[in-house]
């Protein structure tokens, strides 16, 4: 096993909430109608005219302490290369324990009966390509790479910018970071 730790870094200053990342993911990964692996959250703070906005492109956090993997009775949910959390379709019973276990509600039941979610596009990453959502994003909000490689773009961003994760109190140790 490699000592890579794949992470995504989302620069909320740049994201315009256009949803190209959602649509690119859907076509890259054949996500069925009515489902998505990534999504946009737009938060508005304040009262007119003193407003602030934060737009986030969200997906599975590929948690380092993934509760979904712990909850899975069959080993279908597992940790793959670089810490990427995947579901092996052929092992999944669709018991949905992992869905209940995910604090981020990042998973869903695929109409074909297995549980599905963001894969960090590992099939692309393995051949040296970026995840589909990262590749399409017109504002270059999304960054992907190995946080354990200090020279990687993501490692540099995490060193130099203020980053947060969603609900750190879950203890799941997410690997999708939001720059503010």
């Amino acid at each position: 096993m490699s000592s890579k730790r794949y992470v995504m870094v989302v620069d909320t200053r740049l994201c315009v909430g256009c949803k190209a990342c959602v649509l690119a993911c859907k076509s890259e990964n054949n996500v069925p109608d009515g489902y998505c692996r990534d999504w946009i959250v737009e938060d508005i703070f304040g009262i007119f005219p003193n407003l602030r906005a934060e737009i986030r492109s969200e997906r599975c956090n590929h948690c380092s302490g993934a509760p979904c993997v712990d909850a899975c009775p069959t080993g279908a949910s597992h940790v793959s290369e670089g810490g990427v959390v995947l579901v092996s379709h052929h092992k999944c019973t669709g018991c949905k324990a992992c869905i209940a276990a995910c604090p981020y509600d990042a998973r869903y039941v695929h109409p074909d009966g297995y549980v599905d979610k963001c894969t960090f596009c590992l099939h692309r990453v393995q051949r040296g390509e970026l995840p589909a959502c990262v590749g399409i994003c017109p504002t270059r909000t999304l960054h992907f790479g190995d946080a354990n490689d200090p020279s990687s773009e993501v490692a540099q961003l995490l060193r130099t910018r203020r980053a947060k994760v969603n609900h750190p109190e879950t203890g799941a140790e997410p690997n999708v970071f939001f720059l503010t």
């Binding site: 076509s27 890259e28 990964n29 054949n30 080993g75 597992h78 793959s80 290369e81 995947l86 092996s88 379709h89 052929h90 092992k91 894969t119 590992l122 099939h123 393995q126």
Partner: peptide, 12 residues
């Protein structure tokens, strides 16, 4: 047997 965890390729 047959219990590897190959990374699925959506084939698009």
């Amino acid at each position: 047997g047959l219990d590897g965890d190959p990374v699925a390729n959506p084939g698009t």
